[in-house]
């Protein structure tokens, strides 16, 4: 019953007309997934409101136990009759905690299995000892998939963020992309690149050049981006960037920049670089957003550097199409909980 109700609500409303023609990010509304809707440390006894797509999630703790509901706790009984299929009519969402986040289910509650929470191998599972300085919230003024595409896109970083993260000049720059039915993984291997200014000046890396192996692993349903950039000389700066869609035109990102392995003061300051990077991205995302509202007969032009982003567009369309047909299951290649340590290159 929940399946039917939610499917009718639209797995990808308005997507049908554009599925062959173009990339329309505002149409993606993928279901049956866990969203990291808050840092665990941010939730206390006072209810806070978060949004996933168009659904309200009120989060609070009841005698230490995390709760997520469609309504404020004081209105829960009164409004329970108007509860949606997202909570199976109970008003309560499936909710749990892991990796320092509160994970709430978006979709048919009958399918909410904690085993579907994505693996984040560099974070403590129980969230213990994650320093608060690693956790930052930023917001992006565009549809979540557009923001994710911005993150996947590499050449803009070398250009738009050059002053903060380096100019992209290197001896060799190899980009590979792989995908499953549920994820896109982009691997970038750079040899002898200019050391990022931020790493040189406060990160203790005095060399002029360094090698980089950066892996970005994106879960399609919940826009969860897990990144593992490893610098040599230097260190790894693993991070998590969940682009939670707050409606169709904005996203909230509770980032964890897990810089605990980096030297001080870099480990404290680097997570704050989000406040430098985010306005730069927003400057392009804001005007870009409305230009993707409709299928455009003029297709976007691409260079070979856009292969990861174009793959992301393709697999997102495929997944949305599958959900539009009513199939919300995870295929054999798409288990979100599979250990990705090797994929991220944490072993070596």
């Amino acid at each position: 019953m929940n399946d039917i109700a939610i499917a009718k609500a639209g797995a990808a409303d308005g997507y049908e007309n554009s599925r062959l023609a173009d990339w329309v990010p505002i149409h993606f509304d993928l279901r049956d997934t866990w969203f990291p809707v808050a840092f665990s440390a941010d939730i206390g006894t006072q209810a806070v409101r978060r949004i996933v797509h168009a659904q309200a999630y009120y989060l609070w703790r009841d005698r230490g136990r995390i709760r997520a509901a469609e309504f404020r706790p004081d209105q829960l009984e009164e409004l329970r009759r108007s509860a949606t299929a997202f909570t199976g009519g109970t008003g309560h969402y499936p909710v749990t905690e892991r990796y320092g986040y509160v994970w709430a289910w978006y979709g048919n509650p009958d399918n909410a299995d904690p085993a579907l929470i994505p693996s984040i191998p560099f974070l403590p599972v129980d969230g213990s000892n994650i320093p608060r300085y690693t956790q930052r919230t930023v917001r992006f003024d565009a549809a979540s998939p557009l923001s994710v595409e911005n993150l996947i896109d590499l050449t803009h970083a070398d250009f738009l963020h050059a002053k903060a993260i380096g100019d992209g000049r290197s001896e060799s720059d190899i980009v590979e992309v792989q995908s499953t039915s549920e994820t896109v993984t982009r691997t970038r291997i750079v040899t002898r690149k200019s050391v990022a200014p931020v790493m040189r000046w406060i990160g203790g890396v005095r060399a002029k050049y360094q090698d980089l192996r950066a892996v970005l692993h994106v879960h399609l349903r919940n826009n969860l981006a897990i990144s593992y950039p490893s610098f040599s000389p230097g260190y790894a700066i693993p991070n998590v960037q969940p682009f939670v869609p707050v409606g169709r035109h904005r996203s909230r990102v509770d980032q964890t920049n897990y810089t605990v392995a980096a030297p001080a003061p870099f480990r404290w300051l680097m997570p704050r670089i989000s406040y430098v990077i985010q306005p730069q991205d927003n400057a392009v995302l804001r005007p870009q957003n409305e230009r993707y509202f409709d299928a455009d007969r003029r297709r976007d032009l691409s260079s070979r550097f856009d292969a990861p982003g174009n793959r992301y567009r393709l697999v997102m369309r495929r997944l949305a199409e599958r959900q539009r047909r009513g199939d919300f299951s995870y295929a054999a290649d798409g288990d979100p909980s599979v250990d990705i340590s090797a994929v991220l290159g944490m072993d070596g």
Binding site: T155, R291, R298, D300, S303
Partner: peptide, 26 residues
């Protein structure tokens, strides 16, 4: 005022000897 690559406005870009450089990817 629209880059054909990723549709961002070109007007915040910079002028170079080769023309107008898009602010997003150059």
């Amino acid at each position: 005022d629209r880059c054909p690559h990723r549709r961002v406005p070109l007007s915040p870009g910079v002028l170079t000897p080769g023309g107008l450089q898009c602010p997003y990817h150059g």
